[in-house]
């Protein structure tokens, strides 16, 4: 898989430029961290990449084919390979559905997908959902519960199980740990890291927590006012030519 973004721009209104000529590329198995202060366009970038927002200028190319958000049939092919995890896990699960039905939604939408963990097994729908929950370290008893009966960390794990169910080759995480306790944060990050290695996924990790980003990613992109200010590998984190915003982030996070 390869994702190439070139000259991507997005305006919400005449005066508000959310993204301004963004260009970057991601290879298979790469983890790219996207950091930036609030209002810098991080989340917009995530939404555009997953096809939730339209864009006017620039191109997004996935495996050599352009991604056009207005052509539904083409988008479907792309969306089969791309999943997203949001910050607010309570609003990303349907409160009226028991957890196991939410988890199965991607598999129901893309019936042609046959993920590796299901191969050779003849499981009922509920058993499949239970398998997915076990995969992310949850008890299978939770399958019949409703989202409101779960803790924040558990809900986030359910979101991860749902996103991973069709084995996407690209996973976009928009601040997946921001509203969680420190101990739970580490568990979730470890979970993502394990799956990234196991499935050789590409992850775009949007966050403002530089510690989490450096834990997971090898490449970091710094956004400000919708433009890429800085792009570097993790081993160049302390280089003196880093953008002031990057330096400020490190300064704020360090404990020395």
């Amino acid at each position: 898989m390869s994702l190439v973004v070139e000259g991507l721009s997005k305006n919400y209104s005449k005066n508000l430029v959310a993204l301004n000529t963004i260009s970057f590329s991601a290879k298979k198995g790469e983890c790219i961290g996207i950091v930036g202060e609030s209002g810098s366009g991080k989340s917009t970038l995530g939404k555009v990449l997953v096809g939730l927002e339209n864009y006017k200028e620039g191109t997004i190319t996935y495996n050599g084919a352009p991604v056009v958000p207005t052509k539904r049939s083409r988008l479907r092919e792309y969306r089969k390979n791309v999943q997203m995890i949001f910050q607010d896990s309570s609003s990303s699960l349907n409160p009226k559905l028991p957890v196991w039905e939410s988890v199965l939604e991607p598999l129901d939408n893309f019936k042609e997908c046959s993920p590796a963990f299901l191969e050779g097994q003849n499981l009922s729908r509920k058993e499949t959902a239970e398998q997915l929950l076990i995969m992310v370290g949850l008890d299978k008893e939770l399958a019949g519960r409703y989202p409101e009966e779960l803790s924040g960390g558990q809900k986030q794990r359910v979101s991860i199980a749902r996103a991973l169910s069709i084995e996407p080759s690209l996973l976009i995480c928009d601040e997946p740990t921001a509203s969680l306790d420190v101990t739970v944060q580490v568990q979730i990050l470890n979970l993502l890291k394990d799956f990234q290695k196991k499935m050789d996924m590409t992850i775009l990790f949007i966050s403002h927590d530089i510690r989490a980003v450096t834990f997971l990613c090898e490449q970091i992109i710094v956004l400000k006012n919708g433009t890429i200010q800085d792009q570097f590998g993790i081993n160049e984190l302390y280089h003196k030519s880093r953008h002031p915003y990057t330096k400020a982030l490190i300064e704020a996070a360090s404990i020395q």
Binding site: T183, R211, A212, F215, N235
Partner: peptide, 23 residues
């Protein structure tokens, strides 16, 4: 608390602080 904690819970909590490279 950071380096010489005694209680197992403090230990668990402190271990959750991810380190920056070089730290």
């Amino acid at each position: 608390i950071r380096c010489q904690h005694q209680h197992p819970y403090t230990k668990k909590l402190c271990a959750c602080l991810l380190s920056l490279p070089g730290e």
